[in-house]
Amino acid sequence: MRIMTGQSHIIDDAGAYETVRLKMVGEALLVVEFGAQLSPLVLGAARAFDHLLQNEKIPGLQESAPTGNAVALVFDPLHTPPELFRQQIRALVEQADWFERGSLLPSACWHLPICYGGDCGPDLAPLADQLCLSENDVIAAHLETMQRVLMIGFAPGFLYTGRLSEMFNLPRLPDIKPCVPAGSVSVALGQSVISSTAHPTGWRVIGRTPFRNFDPAREPAIIINAGDEIRFVQIDQSAYEDLRNRDRHGLWQLEKGKPHAHA
């Protein structure tokens, strides 16, 4: 696997780079980028490389995080100077074909309850109107897609999943809502986002899940990770309330499904 730090060309329609790019951010963060798009191939490579970083002692490395098409590495430049750190990482990148390794990684599949529309999803009705569909058509389209967790970012436990069918390839709303509740499930850009905390958003909120992916009082604090699969299961408002009331921490067991074979 070749590496370069400058421009690179893309070898396939999955958006994978022929050569992995290393980019510095400030003096203490190195980003290893595997592709230009959030394709399963690119996601897998980033996850596989991150997996290696977590299991190997790398001088200077403080933490790593997979972010969809890349892995971010926080390091101590006073312990390992940036040039030396990049050399180490280049050598590791060259060790294997991360795109191939990514396809071999196991991932969990989660069945996530969701209550669509109404107070839980105020943007569902206007979205259905805009698409000239019924609310049930939009719900069916959102339910039928197996969604893969592209990354956790933006806020604690905040999941980006995709890709959704073409009808959800929508721009963000012009006005940002200053605060939507924890558990909100929103769509835009062919993706869903699932929040664990109240947050501002410019995405369309179509439903709410009683599940909280992040809960600092729970062990582990995070249940669903990058690379996992999600299938939504529709519940009604009373089932939503029931699940929320059963345990404030959302400790009830999420149902696990059988993961798809990787692309």
């Binding site: 790593s64 926080v74 905040f158």
Partner: peptide, 9 residues
Amino acid sequence: RPGHLRHGV
């Protein structure tokens, strides 16, 4: 609270 970037913290 370093070490929790991967969890969005």
